[in-house]
Design a protein around this nucleic acid. Structure first.
Lengths: 217, 217
DNA sequence: CCGCTTCGATAGTGAACGTTATCGCAATAG
DNA sequence: CTATTGCGATAACGTTCACTATCGAAGCGG
């Protein structure tokens, strides 16, 4: 019963694995299993037993690779947020106009909601967890700040490229955009029929049209 | 040990209470204790023992007044959402212009965030709970719909009173406003310094200025 | 090929949880 | 004043959970 392999191992390469390869591999499989377990049952709902056995390991392995359930969860969240904010950024950056960037980013976000709803639930849990626990809150705040910086950067890039001026600091506009994205996701998940797919793009378009004007005056 | 009274009873009136008065009183005190316990520890964190004893009762009383922890939580949430959406509505309705309505509602929302952050956390948990549990989801969706209807109504009232026309259906604008409010709250709770108090009002103002124009085309 | 080190398996601990069966006691009706 | 009804107290149950102490095995350096 070496591994029932519910989660595919990166490679059980024919050759023996070096010690650190093996450890990294274990970590990776634990993270993948945790992602799946947390996603389907939530932070509280998922048990460490379930996570470890889904990865084909025992809880001992989990505790020798992470400080515990909380640590595992936090590591996972950081990784996911990194990955997805990169996705959004590339979806925005290569569009040729302000309006298209808005709808492009919005579209990317909407498909992400549709494709991985459980992940968004996890983000919310991550948030709730951090807001309640004073020790974790800085980590959550840091992640928010990271996303905010990214959006700010995207906005400032647009302002420079299209020679605009803003009615509001780019940072604050970034806060609003992030807020809108979060809120739209929440409503879509609670009641998909209430949120048309093109809504976010249109609202972003309106918002930017009101918040920007050509730099001459 | 009739009552240690951690939660104040409405009135231990000198006269004896009728049977249904007594039961209603018990329910009320249990709800108050639940509000406080859930708020400080979250849905999972709070135990039914804690809730019951904070109310000055035993767990048996709780189970004879509610179907269980989940039922208690849902009843509490419905009540809170009712109350707070009424508050927002009155804060908006009595302002004399579109811009002032926007900033008025936004201000009310920001002070609510500052005054009762734990309650917002609870709303999020309520949401997460409903999204995960197919049996509860309709109840959550219904509450969202209720808020959406209220906002839609407020918007339509404004459109009629000030003789405007909308670039977007009022319902969809309501979704956006609700989303923005939620998202702003989330960021403010995670990192208060990142969200200026007047941001939401200004963004709402921009959004409405872009989404409306005088009715004569 | 050997001895040392460390990763991961196993089994187990203690605590906390939601829930329910049982029973005393007080409020109502006759 | 008595009989009845049902609310609420008590205590215990069964389950589940995060976490850890111990030990075998497999990679590592020599």
């Amino acid at each position: 019963m070496r591994a029932t392999d519910t989660v595919a191992a990166p490679k059980p390469t024919a050759t023996r694995m070096t010690r650190e390869q093996s450890k990294a591999n274990t970590r990776e499989r634990l993270l993948a299993a945790a992602r799946s377990a947390f996603a389907s049952s939530g932070f509280h709902g998922a048990s460490v037993d379930e996570i470890a056995s889904r990865a084909g390991f025992s809880t001992g392995a989990l505790y020798s690779n992470f400080d515990g359930k909380e640590d595992l969860f936090l590591v996972l969240m950081e990784r996911e947020i990194d990955e997805h904010s990169r996705e959004i950024a590339t979806a925005v950056a290569e569009r040729p106009s302000v309006a298209e960037r808005a709808t492009g980013g919005a579209q990317r976000w909407m498909t992400m909601i549709e494709r991985e709803p459980e992940l968004l639930l996890l983000f919310m849990e991550f948030w709730a967890y951090g807001v309640r626990d004073a020790g974790v809150r800085p980590k959550v705040a840091a992640r928010f700040a990271q996303v905010r910086r990214l959006l700010t950067q995207l906005i400032e890039d647009g302002v420079r490229e299209f020679d605009l001026q803003l009615a509001l600091p780019a940072e604050q506009l970034a806060v609003a955009v992030d807020a809108l994205a979060d809120g739209i996701a929440r409503q879509k998940l609670a009641d998909p029929s209430a949120v048309p797919d093109d809504l976010m793009g249109r609202v972003l378009g309106l918002l930017f049209s009101a918040a920007t004007r050509p730099a001459g005056e």
